[in-house]
Design a protein around this nucleic acid. Structure first.
Lengths: 113, 113
DNA sequence: GGTAATTACCTAGATCGTCAAGGTATACGG
DNA sequence: CCGTATACCTTGACGATCTAGGTAATTACC
């Protein structure tokens, strides 16, 4: 277990997926690869986490799926943000900011109080 | 549900608790209050999350408990970091840094690649 | 004197996201 | 022809958190 992907992903996967679709549709495999590339493999998305998350988000109306062909000529299911998904993305980014600022306050606190 | 405490706490509670003990023992109630105060109620620690977390961490040898008296003269169980807990705290802070940097990369990415 | 709020602890049960580990199928490179 | 990469999916278990209860002592208020 070399890069030890932490449990920190919990609750954050959605916003990462939504963000990966912000500039256009991607297929599932491409979402995972993009996230891994963008974070230099700090974030590794297991397929057993990815696909259930995609279904969940599709049920909630944040993304829409359509079958198509990948860049390499293979059958692939492309996901696109809906209007609701775009608005949800904004909310989740704001929530992440609030949260990470709060954690930073704790980790940088001096122990008084 | 006014301030909507997110699910983002997942996987982060341990490091927050460990950090709250970095300058000396606190009792459970005090840990929760300190975290809420320090983050202006952005992070709200439910007691049903807190006490199980404390037991878990005690079992793992990161913290030690001792009964004593609170500042207000009530019976209270004080938790203190062990050497293992201190080292664990350092690791978890480093993991959090890696993780939040990675998320920032994703949320700040320009969509290329 | 009664009662609400605060302090301080604890637990059982349910929920829900993630992971581990399996599976299918096609295409490409050696 | 066999391994690797691409691309999808599912089942089952795990485990952390939350909900919603409970106890008990003290303080504040009316």
């Amino acid at each position: 277990m070399a890069p030890q992907p932490t449990d920190l992903l919990q609750g954050t996967l959605d916003v990462l997926i939504l963000k990966s679709l912000a500039w256009g549709p991607r297929h599932g495999y491409g979402i995972a690869k993009w996230l891994e590339d963008t974070t230099d493999d700090t974030l590794v998305i297991e397929e057993g986490s990815l696909y259930p998350a995609l279904y969940r988000m599709e049920r909630k109306g944040w993304i829409e799926a359509e079958w198509g062909m990948s860049e390499l000529g293979r059958k692939a299911k492309f996901y696109a943000l809906t209007a609701a998904g775009r608005s949800r993305l904004r909310e989740e980014i704001a929530a992440w900011r609030r949260f990470s600022v709060a954690v930073a306050k704790v980790l940088g606190a001096d122990g008084r109080g």
